[in-house]
Amino acid sequence: GVGETMPFFNQESLQQRLQALIDGARESWAYAIFWQSSSTSDFATPSVLGWGDGYYKGEENKNKRRASSSSANFVAEQEHRKKVLRELNSLISGVQAAGAGSVGDDAVDEEVTDTEWFFLISMTQSFANGNGLPGLAMYSSSPIWVTGTEKLAGSQCERARQAQGFGLQTIVCIPSANGVVELGSTELIFESSDLMNKVKYLFNFNIDMGSV
């Protein structure tokens, strides 16, 4: 039931909610991330938002952004990204050696897009309360919606500028009781209460719609 407490620390449940959020959306979101708050009853310890789970869906029109694919920088960067993916894949394959097995070379040797890379490096990031877009959303208990290259590039938040550098045009952070839901897109997507309501429903928490 909607009124029940959501099992926030169940990653399967989180993954399903993240997928439901953007797979069923009219807008084309590239990814959804749940930044999980370090829950502590010690009020002297500041809370930190760290990686909870993420769902990467991909871009709809990624072919149109391949203009620079022949440049030396592009080639070197792709080599670096593929090397990191191979290393990560080795770690994962080692983990599941007794089970499902490796995902295979074809999943690591293809071009690693900017948004895929942004999603992957997000796993290494964390935000103190009030810092970065997710931390700011958490601190203010208000959704943050940034649309457009100029607004992202001009943001005081490093994560917004980083997102812009990797070709994202829209980034949204919506706070929850236990963390922050972030969505990103390479398309221009403007603020809608529809998405807020979906997050509110799927993640079962209260946000102040009056503050949006």
Binding site: W51, D53, L88, L91, A107, E110, F119, M123
Partner: peptide
């Protein structure tokens, strides 16, 4: 250092699975 937190491991597993699906969905034409 080879010691990934479990949430990252799960997320990476899914990322690679989905990536493989996307790669195999690409049209050969």
């Amino acid at each position: 250092d080879g010691d990934l937190p479990i949430t990252r491991k799960k997320s990476l597993e899914r990322f690679f699975e989905k990536r493989k699906e996307r790669m195999t969905m690409v049209s050969p034409y």
